[in-house]
């Protein structure tokens, strides 16, 4: 069984973000980078299937500058067999459609039985790329999965809906699935597996070789949200703060009556 998992390297969302000099993206300097959280679930699910099915092979794909290889090494250490790095110095200027096209153009003639992606990336949060890859390849796609199993050429899964309800869905292979948070418990790579990952194949393909199209969506500008008044901000020593808060709760709410 041939498996592909697509991952993205994103900044840690706890970072302080600044807008870059051209005003159209966040400043990429001085940020801590990590694997997109949704993709950790995708990698874990793909690795579980890889281990369950004899003679299977799992490729991890990532688009971006050279630094994304660090994140790819984590996926390799988690259990992916090989890596494909699509080298793109300015992937942040591409839209979801252009990114999906690069992935689809890479995957088209490779005969993958199942492609895993995260539901969305943490920085863009648009939830487009996975489904677009499937549509470009003419594959069925199941999205927002919180439960997954695959046997006899069929994926059985549960989609997470609003309010805690789930929808049970299934489709035949080949297919693509997008993974929601909580789908499984992503493993931590062990030290021996981290060492082993260093020797795994990591192929680099320049993005230009995969015929990237023009972006259909342009980012005009990026900025922090305007503060809408907001509330009172209190700082100080914990004991002092606690007294102030209790005073406020007495005045503004009825819960301490």
């Amino acid at each position: 069984m041939k498996l592909l998992v697509c991952i993205k390297q994103v900044p840690d969302m706890e970072s302080k973000f600044k807008v870059n000099a051209s005003g159209n993206w966040y400043d990429m300097a001085d940020l801590a980078w990590r694997m997109n959280e949704y993709d950790e679930y995708a990698v874990e699910q793909a690795v579980q299937l890889r281990q369950q099915v004899a003679d299977s092979d799992l490729t991890v794909l990532c688009i971006g500058r050279d630094q994304v290889k660090e994140t790819m090494k984590k996926a390799l250490a988690m259990g992916c067999d090989r890596g494909v790095h699509i080298l793109d110095e300015a992937s942040e200027q591409k839209d979801s459609y252009a990114i999906a096209t690069l992935i689809a153009n890479f995957a088209r003639d490779k005969g993958f039985d199942l492609i895993f992606t995260g539901l969305q990336s943490q920085d863009r949060g648009s939830a487009q790329v996975g489904v677009m890859v499937a549509e470009l390849l003419g594959l069925p796609s199941l999205t927002t999965l919180v439960d997954f199993s695959c046997a006899d050429g069929v994926v059985n899964a549960k989609r997470e809906l609003e309010g805690g309800t789930k929808a049970k869905v299934s489709c035949s292979l080949p297919a693509l699935v997008t993974c929601q948070l909580g789908l499984n418990t992503p493993r931590y790579p062990t030290l021996p597996n981290i060492m082993k990952a260093k020797r795994k194949e990591l192929l680099t393909i320049p993005a230009a070789e995969l015929s990237p199209p023009e972006a259909r969506l342009k980012t005009l500008s990026m900025a922090p949200p305007e503060k809408k008044g907001g509330g009172l901000i209190l700082e100080g020593e914990p004991a002092e703060l606690a007294d102030k808060l209790i005073q406020i709760l007495k005045e503004k709410t009825t819960v301490l009556a």
Binding site: K218, T219, S221, M222
Partner: peptide
Amino acid sequence: PACNSKLRRRVKPE
């Protein structure tokens, strides 16, 4: 929104 609502993007479809 972008980055967990810490930023906002103004966008234009082409």
